[in-house]
Nucleic acid binder design. Structure first.
Lengths: 149, 149
DNA sequence: TGACAAACGCAACCCTGTTGCATTAAGATA
DNA sequence: TATCTTAATGCAACAGGGTTGCGTTTGTCA
């Protein structure tokens, strides 16, 4: 995984600038190592006393996506989330506290995908696979108070 | 798969009514046999000259979901989609024309899920798995004009 | 046929995300 | 270091999916 300096250098070579907001957003992705939404980022920047208009954040995320630095994906809500572009992986999502984690998932679906392509005359380019359930804390809490939405 | 009459009878027993809009929306799900969004339904109802306010459609979808008649899911956009609650399955989504199809997918992920649960201290309740790519028509068109977003 | 609550329509609203345009500032060049 | 170009930013207004409050309509049952 390349670091922030390398990213900024690469961008500089292509005529893009190294700004406070750009650096801070990259910092957040490297610090949290988990999917972040525009709202997450706006919140964290505010905490760090970095002023950034929401438009700027949306545009920066779009920019980083187009530069293949981060990737965008969707969970079971209407919020776009982003994370540093890395090897293909999946997520667990707690349906109670909404904690999202990246997980290892060795099993590849390649042979299945070939079959699907054949049976459905469909060229698969990528797939999304997310697991919804309860994180450890919510699972234990659930045992006590039972009600889980 | 139970039919519309049975559904309406069950609802009636629980004190819910059999209205034009409710019947029409169920008709659409049975007719199209594929995921529908609120917008899809509003469009089709209009075509059939059935007046239905968008609020009513949203509320009816929510109602049918709560009655475990349809289920809600999310793809890679901000639109909620619904389909008749049936056996667990997955979808192919054409990234060009946005055609969505339900597919057979025999391979179950159970053993993988057990491993994920153990490794991540996470209780899996369900998962989503969708395949994105090109349908037959778009794939062929792509061969001619090449550019695929 | 009247009464009651489920179903409905309408307007106003919320939230995530986008667009147009004027302003600011990074960083290359003189 | 001053100047210049244009990437980056802020602001206001907007777009689209979805929700809420509330008054009205209508299905159903006694």
């Amino acid at each position: 995984m390349i670091n922030i300096k390398e990213i900024l250098l690469r961008l500089k070579k292509e005529g893009f600038r190294s700004t406070t907001i750009r650096k801070s957003i990259l910092d957040l992705f490297y610090k949290f190592k988990k999917p972040l939404s525009s709202q997450d980022i706006q919140k964290y920047l505010k905490q760090k006393n970095i002023k950034a208009n929401k438009t700027t954040v949306y545009r920066e995320l779009d920019f980083l996506k187009n530069q293949n630095i981060i990737e965008e994906f969707q969970l079971d809500d209407k919020i776009k989330r982003y994370e540093i572009l890395s090897s293909h992986h999946h997520h667990t999502v707690c349906i109670k506290c909404r904690e999202i984690k990246c997980i290892e998932f060795s099993k590849d679906l390649e042979s299945q995908e070939k079959e699907i392509e054949k049976n459905n005359k469909f060229k698969i380019i990528n797939h999304s696979l997310e697991f919804y359930g309860l994180c450890h804390a919510c699972w234990r809490a659930g045992h006590k108070c039972q009600a889980v939405k």
